[in-house]
Nucleic acid binder design. Structure first.
Lengths: 339, 339
DNA sequence: ACTTGGCACTCGGGAACACAGAGTGCTAGG
DNA sequence: CCTAGCACTCTGTGTTCCCGAGTGCCAAGT
């Protein structure tokens, strides 16, 4: 049905179209790639490919352009991820190594990825799920207000101001802090709720209402931040590429955390560490037809922390983009593991 | 030189051009605004205005368009800030009131401003300058690693991992924490350096190297974060408006923290709480011709914390935009003061 | 059975052209 | 100083025309 030569033709079409941004005709194809066959033969193959929906022509008597289905086949079977050059690798490494804290790591990563791929890069903050509690701090602010600070082993810091139901003396606060830390130190975030379940009962009665309030805020914090912040960079790269659909929609999607989240995460369930590519209409989000997403999870081995990727026009250089995404994911995993 | 009627004509031109986005001609002007004079008279006035550089015509025999100088005059003398409607005010208030921490306040503010003005909103994080130290925390991570956490009265939290020159026992860390807090609690950030200057001398000799390292990181943190993070939102609003210059440049400028910083801050020195408007070429940044910036400081009274504003096409509705920026600045100041 | 050359056909896009309409500057008169 | 009239100058749009790239199909060759 699709013999080797037809596949070669499809590959050639994708490659040419990606690099020239113009519909590619049979003659040019036969010349540029040494297919050893005449344009007429190529035309026949093209007709077959079009028949099956892998390519299409914008108008009668124009060259062919890959369809989403065509790109899909190309990505799945006709291309292989292109590794980065040694120079690029070194650049990544040194750039990421300079990060001072988690915010900085994420910021650098997203910029790096944007620059490397010349697309829009998207990075999700490491989820709290697998983290453990490193330290809990209660800082008295006023009589009835304390700041709750939660420090995790990933270097992440969560903070909340808590309004207490009644005035609590400083030494009480100090005591509660001690109890909290004894109870939670080293404990995984996911098991915090059960750990603290009976905590108020173990306290002197005058501390119980305050502790109950604090705990409710603490639990709320954990739940709220469960799906995490997302940042992006490289929006300027959108300006060059012309989308079939207005780029207003794309920009809107980028600023909508929830949408972005879904786009990155959609296929993360089965094999989180694999590269996933969503092409054009596969996105199932109106306004993102014409854009593709290349994403992968990052984190150490089976301990996947979150996802990162890039978003660009469907007509992108998949092998290179995939190589960059994979490489950056590896390096950032490494950096995070080291801290 | 510029009598009242000429000014009225200029005002009318600006208003019409802003709302229609088309060069405005003498006839339409004489009709739409009741100027009580004939088109011919208007033409004479226009000729004078053009002579002095307030308006220009794209081509011979097209209507007139305001120049940057024209907008400037309009903003300075011909318009007055348009206050928001009561409904808008209420919306702002309730939206901002829901914020849970500083990050959230900033995030909500920038989104709100973007939505309100339908432009790109830019908000600078409150500077640390005027803050005071609320609490310093040292959390042991490994033998030779502690996390330094600095909590300010603005609810801001800074964190850094510190590599110690030698192993330090936990009770030593606790002691150092106590000393640090005694020394710094309530102290303004700007006077931290002098406060800690002789601190190592007052410690037992075994703690001195560790404390010296910690202090150097602490001071570094204060300096580094001195000019602050900036966030923006509403980039999608750029897609609609067509800039004379490509929007690629605008997007690039937005992602370049330093540039953004300069744009917001340029005129903050003299009267920080006033609205400042920079129109088109006044920006002195290539690639931002065609864009204007409306900004103001926020914070309580003379205690200016940082700046916020919007960026949009030169052809924007200045009275409305200025009203929105001013209102949002007031509300966010209020919110921050309350916490 | 597949490949190849030939040939007629189809469109898209650019160049040339005309034209209507909006807007101007100028001048003369109120 | 304002106004009416007039000639002039553009831009933008619609029309037409033509070139060329590219196709589909058919018949001949291997």
């Amino acid at each position: 049905m699709l013999d080797d030569r037809k596949l070669a033709v499809l590959r050639a079409i994708v490659e040419d179209y990606v690099s020239t941004n113009e519909p590619v005709g049979s003659k040019a194809l036969a010349e540029r790639h040494n297919l050893k066959v005449s344009p007429a033969t190529v035309r026949n193959d093209m007709a077959a490919l079009e028949e099956q929906g892998y390519i299409t022509q914008p108008h009668t008597s124009a060259g062919r352009v890959p369809t989403d289905k065509g790109y899909r086949l190309f990505v799945d079977r006709l291309s292989q991820v292109k590794p980065l050059s040694a120079a690029e690798r070194r650049a990544i490494e040194t750039f990421l190594a300079g990060a001072v804290d988690l915010d900085d790591v994420v910021m650098r990563t997203v910029r790096l990825l944007a620059q490397l791929t010349r697309q829009v890069a998207v990075v999700q903050y490491p989820t709290l799920n697998r983290s453990t509690v490193r330290h809990v701090e209660l800082v008295p602010l006023h009589d009835r207000r304390v700041m709750l600070v939660l420090i995790t082993n990933m270097g992440r810091v969560e903070q909340r101001v808590v309004e207490l139901p009644e005035v609590v003396e400083e030494h009480r606060v100090a005591h509660m802090r001690g109890v909290l830390n004894d109870c939670l130190d080293g404990c995984g975030l996911s098991c915090v709720p059960e750990q603290v379940a009976d905590l108020p009962q173990r306290l002197p009665i005058e501390e119980r209402p305050a502790m109950a309030t604090i705990l409710s805020v603490l639990l709320e914090t954990l739940v709220e931040r469960h799906d995490e912040k997302i940042v992006f960079a490289g929006a300027a790269n959108l300006a060059g590429a012309d989308f079939s659909v207005g780029l207003r929609d794309v920009l809107e999607a980028l600023e909508e955390q929830v949408v972005l989240m879904r786009l990155l995460g959609e296929t993360s369930s089965d094999t989180p560490s694999a590269l996933t590519v969503r092409i054009g209409s596969e996105n199932a989000y109106t306004g993102l037809r014409g854009t593709s997403i290349v994403a992968t999870g990052y984190g150490q081995g089976d301990n996947q922390l979150a996802r990162l990727g890039v978003l660009g026009p469907t007509r992108m250089d998949y092998p290179v983009t995939m190589g960059a995404v994979r490489a950056v994911a590896r390096y950032v995993s490494q950096i995070l593991a080291a801290s």
